[in-house]
Simulated assay, not measured.
Amino acid sequence: MLTLAFVTGTEPGKWFHRFRQRTEHGGLLTLDSDDALGLVLDGSADLALARLPDARLTEDFHTVRLYEEARGVAVPKDSIFAELGEKVLARDLEGEILNYRIAEDGSIDYGELRAALQVVGANVGIAIAPRPLIRVLSKKQVVALELVDRSVPGTEIALVWRREADSDAIQDFVGIARGRTTNSSRQAAPKRSAREKTLAKQERRGRPNFRIDKSGGKGRRRSR
């Protein structure tokens, strides 16, 4: 059994399905958490789908970076910004009440962000955070737009686990998350020879197998 903690704002359901379908490691237990890495640190999980940067990471951990998150801004549903499209520039937000912003070190206070989004939903100000996270935490009164502003610290999603706890199950999940297909996975069936493939195809079609009778006339065949 592999226990995986995934941070709020990620939606790895397709990876969970593929892992359960393709592997035989006794199943997969998943834990949704604002602090997925913390569950690995305290031993509650074997593997974390975590949001970086995180100052707690040391050389004792393996880290596989998967993707960067888009910067986002939460705006009221009825605001003029919600009508501008999918993206908004930093200069467009000048003068707006800022209820929350990602810390300079890239860390996120999930409690403060949730409270800020409630204020935004009440049609007051904005909040800046990773766009996928805003989408997951927002109510109907809030719209998550992509923020074009390089001054806002970037975040990324990564798989993290202790080096000493490495296992085949973890490696298989990492491979799936990185796009490993069934044919290239560790669970892929052994490759068959051309003859084995031909015989299998004939068997599926219900045909008798034949071979060339080299002892007789040219091209003569006989049933095996």
Rank of each mutant, 00 (worst) to 15 (best):
residue 105 D to M: 08
residue 157 I to R: 09
residue 221 R to W: 03
residue 72 G to Y: 12
residue 81 F to W: 15
residue 140 K to F: 08
residue 118 Q to P: 00
residue 36 A to C: 06
residue 26 G to P: 11
residue 74 A to K: 07
residue 111 G to A: 12
residue 124 V to T: 15
residue 89 L to D: 12
residue 31 L to G: 05
residue 170 I to F: 08
residue 41 L to A: 11
residue 114 R to H: 00
residue 11 E to Y: 11
residue 128 I to C: 05
residue 63 T to F: 03
residue 211 R to V: 06
residue 204 R to P: 06
residue 105 D to W: 14
residue 168 D to A: 13
residue 41 L to E: 08
residue 121 G to R: 04
residue 189 A to Y: 10
residue 82 A to Y: 02
residue 27 G to L: 04
residue 132 P to H: 00
residue 194 A to K: 15
residue 120 V to Q: 05
residue 209 N to W: 09
residue 145 L to K: 12
residue 101 R to E: 08
residue 98 L to F: 05
residue 199 L to N: 05
residue 218 K to S: 10
residue 160 V to Y: 00
residue 74 A to W: 05
residue 195 R to S: 13
residue 157 I to L: 07
residue 153 P to V: 11
residue 177 A to H: 01
residue 143 V to C: 03
residue 221 R to M: 15
residue 182 T to Y: 15
residue 160 V to R: 01
residue 19 F to N: 06
residue 59 E to L: 07
residue 187 Q to A: 08
residue 55 A to Y: 01
residue 119 V to A: 11
residue 139 K to P: 01
residue 16 F to T: 10
residue 215 S to L: 12
residue 72 G to F: 13
residue 123 N to G: 15
residue 93 L to Y: 11
residue 5 A to Y: 00
residue 141 Q to V: 02
residue 216 G to E: 15
residue 167 S to A: 08
residue 132 P to S: 02
residue 3 T to S: 11
residue 6 F to A: 07
residue 15 W to L: 04
residue 161 W to T: 05
residue 8 T to C: 10
residue 131 R to C: 01
residue 47 L to Q: 15
residue 45 A to I: 07
residue 57 L to V: 12
residue 131 R to T: 09
residue 20 R to C: 12
residue 200 A to I: 09
residue 47 L to W: 09
residue 200 A to R: 13
residue 99 N to G: 12
residue 62 H to I: 07
residue 181 T to Y: 06
residue 79 S to R: 05
residue 196 E to F: 11
residue 165 A to E: 15
residue 65 R to F: 02
residue 58 T to N: 07
residue 182 T to Q: 14
residue 174 V to W: 00
residue 155 T to D: 02
residue 53 P to N: 05
residue 193 S to R: 10
residue 96 E to R: 02
residue 108 I to H: 00
residue 48 A to Q: 04
residue 2 L to G: 07
residue 110 Y to F: 15
residue 163 R to Q: 11
residue 101 R to C: 05
residue 140 K to A: 14
residue 224 R to F: 14
residue 47 L to R: 12
residue 175 G to D: 09
residue 181 T to R: 14
residue 180 R to T: 13
residue 167 S to Q: 04
residue 186 R to V: 10
residue 192 R to S: 12
residue 207 R to G: 00
residue 127 A to I: 03
residue 130 P to A: 15
residue 116 A to T: 08
residue 132 P to E: 01
residue 186 R to E: 11
residue 205 R to N: 04
residue 94 E to S: 11
residue 150 R to Y: 13
residue 188 A to F: 14
residue 48 A to T: 04
residue 204 R to G: 15
residue 196 E to Q: 14
residue 167 S to D: 09
residue 195 R to F: 10
residue 87 K to T: 15
residue 57 L to E: 07
residue 205 R to Y: 02
residue 117 L to I: 10
residue 143 V to H: 09
residue 201 K to N: 04
residue 130 P to R: 03
residue 87 K to W: 13
residue 81 F to D: 04
residue 58 T to M: 08
residue 67 Y to L: 14
residue 57 L to K: 07
residue 142 V to W: 01
residue 33 S to P: 01
residue 15 W to P: 06
residue 46 D to K: 07
residue 191 K to R: 13
residue 128 I to Q: 11
residue 22 R to F: 04
residue 2 L to E: 08
residue 203 E to F: 09
residue 125 G to N: 02
residue 206 G to Y: 03
residue 1 M to N: 11
residue 80 I to C: 08
residue 78 D to N: 13
residue 159 L to W: 00
residue 182 T to E: 14
residue 118 Q to V: 04
residue 109 D to V: 09
residue 27 G to Y: 03
residue 162 R to G: 05
residue 40 V to Y: 00
residue 192 R to D: 14
residue 10 T to K: 04
residue 71 R to A: 05
residue 28 L to Y: 05
residue 159 L to N: 02
